[in-house]
Computed example of a mutant assay.
Amino acid sequence: MSGAAGPAASPDGRDDLGGEGTADTMRERAGENRAKLWLLLRANRLVVAGVLTLAVFVGFVAAAAAFSPALAEKVGASDPIETLFASMITAIVTGATLVVTIGQLVLTQENGPLGDQQERMDDTLAVRSSVAALTGEPAPTDPAAFLDALLAAATGRAHALRESVRGRTDGSDGDETAVGADVDALAAGVVGNADAVRDRLDGAAFGSFDVVFAALDFNYGRKLGRIERIADEHGEALTDAERDRLDELREALSLFGPAREHVKTLYFQWALIDLSRLILYAAVPALVVAGAMVTVVDAGTFSGSTLGVAHVTLVVGGAFAVTLLPFSLFVAYVLRVLTLAKRTLAIGPLVLRDSE
């Protein structure tokens, strides 16, 4: 979803404040195909893992059918089945152990001596006090409501800044001065973008990707950059009251940055713990299937064919796909985490071309 447009962009993609284009949503900033970004970020991770598993099965069977009967006969032989699934047992056990190690590394961040825990608490309460001072009420405890409160404060301060310069003219033809036009465009961008994100935060529950995904679409970094440029180019034209309003808006936007990063970090930990649990769950049936294939299945276990595809090929392909399910889960979750990390590498008004 897009927020309100900011300053008009010139043909070379630079806006009238000297910045690059004015896109607010992550998809627009990244220039990615909508379907690709949906697959990497928005799609349910269990569905993505299921699709990957199904693709492995279909690919395996299609390859066997294409090279039939030679490949089907080879798959039907006992030794290749033993070799394949014995290797899969080793891979599953090793992978599950690695996942447990990753989970332990995530959890170690929550462990520590009493002094460290007290420091974490003091830092958290200090930030919450800053947010309470900014919004004029106690900081919400729900992550979505917490981000929403910051956006509401930014919207209110953008309105106040716009009102403080409204009606300024150059004394000739009644047009707004350059400072009035730039401030109005900045305020419109903040309000429009914040309102769109707040609509998506409404009712979003942490644990799902909805909170983080909505927060990604508030382009606070570019707005901070515009504030700096306005202060530099129009500092002398601004009154003391207008400079105070500009600083207040900057304060609201600068608090949103670390708040979003904190929520994103918590989501990373949440997702990696979920991933560890799911892989351990999937490893048990995968080991059972791999063990059964090694000890039970041979060339004569499944005779006959369907639509020209040997039954043993279908069974081996299905079993191979099931044993790869833990890896499919790993790929599905890590794709989202890595994509999200890349798109949010920089904090503040620093634009990375690959992520912006």
Rank of each mutant, 00 (worst) to 15 (best):
V106H: 07
G300K: 13
P11K: 08
I89D: 03
L266A: 12
V284T: 10
G95R: 09
V312Q: 07
D217A: 08
A62S: 06
A43M: 14
V47P: 06
Q104D: 09
T94P: 00
E242G: 04
R243Q: 10
V48C: 15
S87G: 01
S355A: 15
L46V: 04
S355H: 07
T97Y: 07
I89S: 01
R260G: 01
A237L: 03
A132P: 08
L266S: 11
L350I: 15
T301Y: 02
A346N: 07
I279F: 01
D182Y: 00
L46C: 06
F67D: 10
Q118F: 08
K342I: 13
G221A: 12
A152R: 08
L325T: 15
R128H: 04
L224V: 07
V315D: 06
A194D: 07
V106W: 10
G318M: 08
A5T: 14
V309R: 10
Q118I: 00
M121P: 02
S172W: 13
A43I: 00
F67E: 04
L125S: 06
L350R: 04
S87N: 02
A23V: 11
A64Q: 11
D274R: 12
T265Y: 02
A299T: 13
A65L: 03
R200Q: 11
L287T: 11
Y267S: 02
A144Y: 08
A259N: 15
L216K: 05
L107W: 03
E233Q: 11
A96D: 00
F57T: 13
E32T: 00
A63P: 04
S68M: 07
V263E: 04
F330R: 10
D244H: 09
S172A: 13
A55G: 14
S305E: 15
A187N: 06
N33V: 00
V197D: 09
G348V: 11
E233C: 00
A292L: 13
P143M: 10
A77L: 05
T306F: 07
G13H: 00
V351I: 14
P143D: 04
D148G: 04
V296A: 00
I347E: 13
L37V: 01
D232P: 09
A181C: 06
G6R: 13
T306K: 03
D210A: 12
M1D: 04
A178V: 01
V61T: 14
A341R: 15
T135M: 09
A55T: 12
R120A: 05
T83G: 06
E82Y: 06
F302D: 03
V131I: 14
A283M: 01
G3W: 09
F218C: 03
L216D: 01
A241K: 06
R27L: 02
A188R: 14
E242F: 01
V337Q: 13
N44D: 12
A152S: 12
K36R: 08
A126G: 04
L71R: 12
V212L: 01
V51K: 02
M26K: 03
T101Q: 06
